[in-house]
């Protein structure tokens, strides 16, 4: 479980000190973003470390989802989005001119607020990314069973769906759908996982299960998670970024942010004086 105390009790974790020296997964430099005339992000400079869970918190409309969605450039689906500055993922500028958008999205997986499995079978969902990113010559059907099993085991879903792999994924419960949405990212071996309020559509039990899963994935992936739920940020992240009106106010270890935040705005938000 991820309750406060137990996290610290995990042996050999010491993640905060390790995290400080860890290499950077996502680095933004003077990132500004406009939707048409409206500026949503102001000079965002962040160094998000590898192998840990970083939570993005802040009141509605503060730009946390916008920031998340610009990291795999899914923001570009919307007309009139304009960006200045750079975002480097694994030390490569993903907005550079030679960059292939499809490769960016392959290596930076995204989990959405509302579970969005495709209306195909569970198995095909897990294999969707793998199939589109594996060249035809090397695509072997014999590998697929193992890939499906491994991905579903990783998200703790295998035992529950192993007999219904050919059923439609949209018939699963929301919790299982969300786990499946995480599972389908894994076969293409992404470096970074972006999660946009992954538990907000789930009931408390589902939330707990998905949080547990996210914690399991920690270390193998660098995870950036947007959350509205401060308790969730507190129990399920290593570092926290607090945003307000499109600006980053504070970025620090989760333990510190919730106990002794540096900035008064952070303290006010955490104590529930606004937002």
């Amino acid at each position: 479980m991820l309750r406060d105390g137990s996290v610290k009790a995990m042996p050999g974790l010491n993640h905060h000190t390790n995290a400080r020296s860890a290499p950077v997964a996502i680095r933004t430099r003077d990132l500004n973003l406009w939707y048409g005339q409206f500026q949503a992000l102001f000079d965002v400079n962040l160094n998000i470390k590898r192998g840990i869970i970083t939570a993005l918190i802040g009141p509605s409309g503060c730009g946390k989802t916008t920031l998340l969605r610009s990291v795999n450039r899914i923001n570009e689906r919307i007309d009139g989005v304009r960006t200045t500055g750079t975002i480097e993922v694994m030390d490569e500028d993903i907005y550079a001119s030679g960059v292939e958008l499809l490769q960016v999205r392959k290596q930076i997986g995204m989990v959405f607020q509302r579970p969005n499995p495709l209306p195909i079978s569970i198995r095909d969902n897990v294999l969707f990314g793998y199939r589109i990113h594996t060249p035809k010559e090397t695509l072997r059907h014999s590998d697929e069973d193992a890939i499906v099993e491994q991905a579903l085991r990783q998200v703790l879903l295998w035992d529950e769906v192993k007999d219904s792999l050919h059923k439609k994924a949209t018939g699963l419960s929301l919790e299982k759908q969300q786990k499946l949405c995480i599972a389908r990212l894994l076969p293409v071996k992404p470096e970074v996982l972006l999660m946009d309020e992954p538990c907000s559509a789930l009931d408390p039990k589902g939330t707990e299960a998905v949080e547990e899963l996210i914690w399991e994935l920690r270390g193998d992936y660098s995870i950036l998670i947007v959350t509205h739920n401060m308790a969730q940020a507190r129990r399920a992240s290593d570092e926290c970024i607090f945003m307000l009106l499109g600006k980053v106010i504070e970025h620090t270890a989760t333990d510190k942010m919730f106990v002794t935040p540096d900035r008064p705005e952070t303290a006010d938000y955490i104590e529930g004086r606004y937002g």
Binding site: N72, K106, G109, R114, G129, H133
Partner: peptide, 10 residues
Amino acid sequence: RYREAAEAMG
């Protein structure tokens, strides 16, 4: 959201 999901996977 189906299109978005597929696009987000590249």
